[in-house]
Design a binder for these strands. Structure first.
Lengths: 340, 340
DNA sequence: GGCAATTATGTAAACCTTTACATGATGCAT
DNA sequence: ATGCATCATGTAAAGGTTTACATAATTGCC
């Protein structure tokens, strides 16, 4: 009808009550008499009133909005987590705000303005570190409500949700062992990276438990990219000894390994077995399709948002650190070991 | 320092000026004397003041926030568009709010609350239709600022940004023709869908221009999924005649075609050429890697956000409809035609 | 030096809610 | 009938800005 949207005052006028009563009728129906509540609801319907969130947020110092800080929004792994985050948030009446930081300190700092001005109530951090603008403001400064996802935040006791990398790696390597492999390489050692370190540790523990030696020549550095996986294989070929199976720190690396081996004329999985980790979207389209550990991305998204909202609304928390299980996905890049 | 963040009043007090002057010093520096501006900035630095966006938004009836309505946030195609959207928005000081609608009318309606309560200033629509809550509110009702992306909105003159499907399809089919193919099938006819229709039209025009007949038996329905591509090929095999090349409405369909042909024992691209459209992330990992038309997703995201913000801020608009060119990506699923 | 025009600053309203507190009405027990 | 507790509603403040309008200070000009 009118150009300006209806305010609570318009409703109050039509219903013949005060604005306080309108507010109560809408937000705390129990506190208002049946008859007046009916009048109010009628007036609301007639005017098409919808409460102005800006005004409410200002008054309540709460926006029902969650800021999501991700280093790379374009990462296909991220999009599934995002679905989980969105689902859970929207279920509880929260909206989500996307911040693509690209690991740029300036952008991280910039996005904090949403927090400092109450435009967002909490943060989901996928970057593996505190947003830059927070770090410099001193240790004792109280942090906004925050949950770290996938990558734990260093040097800070931030609630965390992620996959159980240690156990997942153990399961992966156990599977290779169960297929008869004894000489298993780990591709993706990466000193600074927490996730990579856990997966390497899982690899070592699985071998040790099975009573197998860990050959240092079979543990190769790689930074998680396809190119680095390919490079690692090439480095290995300049030496004499080769494993029968490769456990890779992630699927991208595994893809590089597959490409390198295929390019050298090997037939996979007959000649070598390759196992990845993550189950990224194209793992099933590679040839051979990739046997890997699936990250429960949807669940990770949901669980982390659930944790953050519980924190925010002061609900009791069971665990501040949630580890979800990775599942073994059997495809065609791993086969029974056979000697020639 | 203090628990409560500094307000404009604190700054005014320290600087020894009124709050109006502080506001002006920050927002319209030209309107304030150099000396006072310096004092204000000092006070701002001392207090760590940052303007409360809620209060500003309330006063200005503007949130600097854009709502993005997508049917499936998890779609890998979407994530690259999202990067473009985010980049452009953040460059201009806007934030983005994600709404995953899953084509659920209730969710679409629900997300409109952000618009009606001034929590978002405009909408980017990727669903191909008006958000459900808007449709029912009558035709003459003024729509919020809105730009449609990828899928034009039916029955409404909404500004649009997308890829030039017609021209892209022509280029794709021209390429097949240039490789010597004369019998080219179109997989993906889909009556209701605007995008599919344009690609089919491009296919027809390319053939006609080249003086080739369009064999109705070579135009098959498919709904854009991998499964439907596979099914279309199977249907084709119950007939006698086969094309030498397949132009598929999108990469997912092409993937199905490749799977079906490979399963029947054909060697691609020797026996058949297959061309897709989209260049989805795993197009390069399929065997054979997929020759296709690349959608400039990043640019689409940027251009659509640019258009929406120009609309929003009353800047002059060159075109309300932007078509971006799709690029031919040569890989290994298309080869020269050869008869046996 | 006096007047007008310009410039810099201040005052207060407006943006729209929620909610503490006050007020008035109703019911119940004594 | 009186007093007290309970319940429903109203009044007004608070939340932190921006900005139209008013006022004070400065400049320019003759």
């Amino acid at each position: 009808m009118s150009a300006k949207p209806a305010t609570i005052e318009d409703v109050a006028l039509i219903a013949g009550v005060s604005i306080a009563t309108v507010s109560r009728a809408l937000n705390e129906p129990a506190k208002v008499a049946d008859s007046t509540r009916r009048k109010v609801l009628e007036a609301v319907a007639k005017t098409g009133y919808t409460t102005n969130a800006m005004a409410r947020n200002l008054r309540m110092r709460k926006s029902n909005m969650i800021l999501i800080l991700a280093p790379d929004v374009g990462d296909p792994n991220f999009s599934n987590i995002l679905v989980g985050l969105e689902t859970e948030a929207s279920k509880r009446g929260y909206g989500i705000l996307i911040g693509n930081t690209q690991n740029d300190p300036a952008r991280e700092t910039d996005y904090l303005r949403f927090i400092s001005s109450n435009q967002a109530d909490g943060i989901i951090v996928l970057t593996g570190h505190l947003p830059f603008g927070l770090v410099q403001s001193g240790a004792t400064k109280s942090l906004p409500p925050m949950v770290a996802v996938n990558e734990p935040v260093l040097n800070a006791d931030i609630p965390f949700v992620g996959v159980d990398n240690l156990e997942g790696a153990r399961i992966a390597v156990d599977h290779l062992i169960s297929q008869g492999h004894r000489e298993i390489a780990f591709i993706g050692q990466s000193p600074g990276r927490a996730v990579a370190n856990l997966r390497e540790r899982g690899y070592r523990e699985a071998l040790t438990r099975a009573g197998l030696e860990i050959d240092p020549r079979f543990v190769l550095e790689a930074n998680g990219t396809t190119e680095s996986g390919r490079g690692a294989v090439e480095r290995m070929f300049v030496r004499d000894q080769l494993p029968s199976a490769f456990f890779c720190v992630n699927d991208a690396t595994a893809l590089g390994v597959i490409i390198a081996l295929t390019a050298r004329g090997y037939d996979l999985p007959r000649d070598f077995s390759v196992m990845g980790f993550d189950d990224i979207s194209y793992a099933s389209f590679v040839t051979p399709s990739l046997t890997t550990m699936k990250q429960p991305r949807l669940e990770i998204g949901e669980a982390s948002m659930e944790l953050l909202l519980a924190l925010l609304e002061g609900e009791p928390i069971k665990n501040r650190h949630v580890l979800l299980r990775a599942d073994l996905i059997l495809r065609n890049s791993v086969a029974l070991y056979r000697s020639y």
